[in-house]
């Protein structure tokens, strides 16, 4: 039997204990990490494997709209697309979820009308996370109460970068508790690190461990709102973290790269990373997601190409 989180109980007893633990994790060599990610990116995925990968990728998308200009109409259109990504081909899988702001959760929920597409809501003063703890928790509870199946929270990068690791940990724990529903179930919690702001790979590995120890169901790269979002390298690093965590605790945690993944080719590279780093245990939308919007249309065009033999064009997929 695997050991459990109790093995790490001592780690979170104090700021200094947590710091010692995090700084004792193996370092990350940036060049080696990026070279490995690039090398896996040269895998050539053809024919049947490609068809499988495209459908898998579609089913892993958290179809996202996170704009100030989001309206109920926009959210309803997005929801419809999540259920029927390709209106001309009903064999196309549904996306995993739609991802919206908390005030749009009810709209999305209604639009999905019971289809097997989750509603994910960002929370905790997304994207900057600059708000008081009670506000973040209220934001979370609101979204859960409105019917969110999943919460995408952001960590306080300021606290992390200032070295207040325990505070970062406690925030995630508190949000996790706020994900609980009255019936005893809970929304699944995705923890966004905003890797582009954490800047170093060592930081990303440390943040991953904070998230995993605090009870994250998913660890997620980014908000999509900064210059550098998901990359093969930072996603590979986070996959290594969930792999190591499972080996040590038996607890499986999902990974969600978000932002900047726009093409089928990119998406397949990420699936190869999953396949060769953590294996097929993670090759489902229970454990791996893409935070994306424009990616879906590219996947659909590639899917049409595979089924018809003709290259498709933007007029043959829906603009939402």
């Amino acid at each position: 039997m695997p050991t459990t989180l109790t093995a790490f109980a001592d780690v979170t007893t104090s700021d200094s204990a947590l710091r010692r633990f995090l700084h004792g994790l193996p370092g990350v060599d940036a060049v080696g990490l990026e070279a490995r990610a690039a090398s896996l990116g040269t895998r050539s995925i053809k024919t049947t494997a490609k068809a499988y990968a495209i459908d898998l990728a579609i089913s892993m998308i958290d179809l996202t709209t996170l704009e100030g200009a989001d309206t109920p109409g926009k959210v309803r259109a997005l929801s419809a697309k999540a259920v029927h990504p390709d209106p001309t081909d009903r064999t196309t899988p549904m996306t995993a979820a739609v991802c919206v702001y908390p005030d749009m959760v009810a709209t999305a929920k209604a639009a999905l009308n019971g289809a097997d597409v989750k509603v994910a809501s960002v929370a905790t003063a997304f994207p900057a996370g600059r708000a008081a703890l009670p506000v973040k928790l209220a934001d979370t509870r609101d979204a859960v109460a409105a019917g969110a199946d999943e919460i995408d929270m952001v960590i306080d990068r300021g606290a992390f970068l200032a070295g207040r690791y325990l505070e970062t940990y406690e925030l995630i724990k508190a949000v996790k508790e706020a994900c609980a529903r009255p019936d005893g179930s809970a929304a699944r919690l995705k923890v966004i690190f905003e890797t582009g702001e954490l800047s170093t790979y060592d930081n990303i590995r440390r943040a991953s461990w904070i998230g995993m120890l605090a009870g994250a169901d998913f660890i997620k790269t980014s908000t999509g709102k900064v210059g550098v979002n998901a990359t093969p390298a930072n996603t590979l690093l986070m996959l290594e973290a969930v792999r190591d965590f499972k080996a040590q605790t038996g607890i499986q945690i999902g990974v969600k790269p978000a932002g900047g993944i726009r093409t089928t080719k990119d998406a397949i590279k990420f699936l190869v990373l999953v396949n060769e780093t953590v294996g097929e245990d993670w090759l489902s939308n229970t454990w791996f997601r893409f935070g994306a919007s424009s990616l879906l249309n590219d996947l659909l065009m590639q899917r049409q190409k595979l089924s018809t033999g003709r290259y498709s064009g933007p007029d043959y997929v829906t603009v939402d």
Binding site: V31, E197, T200, V228, T231, A233
Partner: peptide, 13 residues
């Protein structure tokens, strides 16, 4: 010896 970027943010991906 690897040099690499100063941060993951500078990655070329």
């Amino acid at each position: 010896h690897p040099t690499g970027s100063l941060g993951a943010g500078g990655s070329s991906y």
